[in-house]
Design a protein around this nucleic acid. Structure first.
Length: 438
DNA sequence: TCTGGGGTCCTAGGACCC
DNA sequence: TCTGGGGTCCTAGGACCC
């Protein structure tokens, strides 16, 4: 009876898209198949996704566009990022993956964890089915890694990507301790999830070169010399779950909207336009997750890369009571901006961050409103909430800049807007753009 | 000319309290 | 005279992730 009562061994899968943004572009422009393609960040600053063909040209992740532009002569295709398209493709991909298990955690735009514990079938078979279905139904190639913990699933996914003979699926679940050690002994420490560019050299200096080395390292040493987080990573590498599972998306605790400018900005009026737009965007995200913010932070800075006079500053403006109203947030953001703005600098970037984000409470619960003439305040808050809902619906329907509060309006050729020289049509999100046939 | 944007968690240290 | 030992809360900054 012991065998029947025992719980099945944990089995976590990590599924992610290969060169996801590039793959999205290829779904709708099949002529890009087989060609070196990169997707450029906002402002066409640097490469944020590369196909295998582009990697083979030696383009590293994050390569500045101005340094690799010349590769166009050798057939490189560069596309300005279209995040609306990628978000839409992501939703489709996640829905298909979610069909394989009731427990799914969407970790990023192109990655999701799936709990396969107790489901019938071998890991390899399930993984292969997931890959095939996502490719057929959505058009995105994926890899699947499976392990007893999230960290091992990530590591297995890394192996599935780098070892062609695995054909896109790697299952490390169900291995004994010795087999597991052997399976991960060639994975460099810098490729372990949770070890970044700062920790890797420090660990290597201690002789911890591989994932297997970290798994073997004494937890007390890791806690003392590094952190509790790294100790968790090591435990996960041994197959002991130390990182929790999030079935529902966790509401964000801060919401940012920030951009580098297309050209330097000296003018307060122009900065006000930009900050107004950032604030409306952030407020929209705030309302999408049904939250209120109690403070607004604004920051402006000159370029990190220019030799000119440097200035960076930020201000936090607390709000009387938490709100999701664009106009209230705007007033706070603009007053913050005016308090940090100094004339005579070439500003390269600005941003807005909503702080103290918390679940929205119903209007009548808010203390401050009782303190005032509650009837009047309540009515005006309700009116404001209804207006915001209408604005959000119109923007979702017709494009994000369709409706804005007055001070967020700007000329379509405003200097601070992003450069996006390589945009492809917004196939799935903008009316009038059509899918390439071919 | 030219180098993204958006998040999380943990820790150290100061202020304050008993 | 030299200089308690905790605890909590807050903030800034470091490190990581995609």
């Amino acid at each position: 009876m012991g065998a029947q009562a025992r719980r099945p061994p944990p089995r976590i899968a990590l599924i992610d898209g290969n060169s996801f943004y590039c793959a999205c572009e290829r779904v709708l422009r099949p002529s890009l198949e087989g060609r070196p393609v990169i997707v450029l960040s906002n402002n066409d600053g640097c490469a944020i996704a590369r196909t295998a063909e582009a990697k083979a040209m030696g383009i590293p992740m994050g390569a500045p566009w101005f340094k690799i532009q010349h590769l166009q002569a050798r057939g490189l295709v560069a596309i300005s990022a279209n995040f609306a398209l990628y978000g839409d493709m992501s939703d489709r991909m996640m829905r298909v993956i979610g069909q394989f298990s009731p427990a799914q955690e969407i970790y990023s735009i192109d990655e999701s964890f799936l709990d396969l514990t107790g489901l019938p079938g071998a890991g390899r078979d399930i993984g292969t089915q997931i890959r095939q279905r996502v490719l057929r139904w959505v058009g995105i190639p994926t890899c699947v890694g499976i392990g007893a913990t999230k960290t091992l699933a990530k590591l297995a996914n890394h192996l599935a990507k780098s070892l062609p003979r695995l054909q896109g699926v790697c299952d490390l679940s169900g291995l004994g301790p010795a087999e597991l050690q052997r399976a991960i002994r060639h994975v460099p420490i810098r490729d372990v999830w949770g070890v970044g560019r700062r920790l890797a050299p420090r660990l290597e200096a201690l002789g911890i070169q591989s994932a297997a080395d970290l798994a073997r390292t004494d937890g007390r040493v890791l806690q003392r010399q590094f952190s509790a987080t790294l100790d968790k990573t090591a435990r996960e590498l041994r197959g002991e779950p130390a990182i929790g599972w999030e079935d529902a998306p966790v509401p964000k605790q801060q919401i940012m909207s920030t951009r580098s400018f297309g050209l330097p900005v000296r003018d307060l009026a122009e900065l006000e336009q930009a900050v107004s737009l950032f604030t409306s965007r952030a407020a929209e995200k705030l309302r999408q997750q049904h939250s209120h913010a109690a403070a607004v932070q604004v920051f402006i800075r000159t370029s990190r890369f220019s030799a000119g006079p440097w200035h960076a500053d930020s201000a936090v403006v607390p709000l009387g009571s938490p709100t999701d109203s664009t106009s209230v947030l705007l007033r706070a953001a603009l007053s913050g901006l005016r308090s940090v703005f100094q004339p005579g600098f070439d500003y390269a970037k600005a941003g807005v961050c909503l702080l103290d984000v918390r679940p929205a409470v119903s209007v009548s619960m808010q203390g401050e409103l009782f303190a005032l003439d509650s009837g009047h305040a309540e009515k005006s808050a309700l009116r404001s909430a209804r207006a915001m809902a209408v604005v959000d619906r119109l923007n979702q329907r017709f494009g994000s800049r369709m409706v804005q509060v007055a001070s967020a309006l700007h000329e379509p050729d405003a200097r601070w807007l992003m450069r996006q020289a390589h945009q492809s049509p917004s196939y799935t999100t903008v009316w009038g753009d059509v899918v390439e046939v071919g």
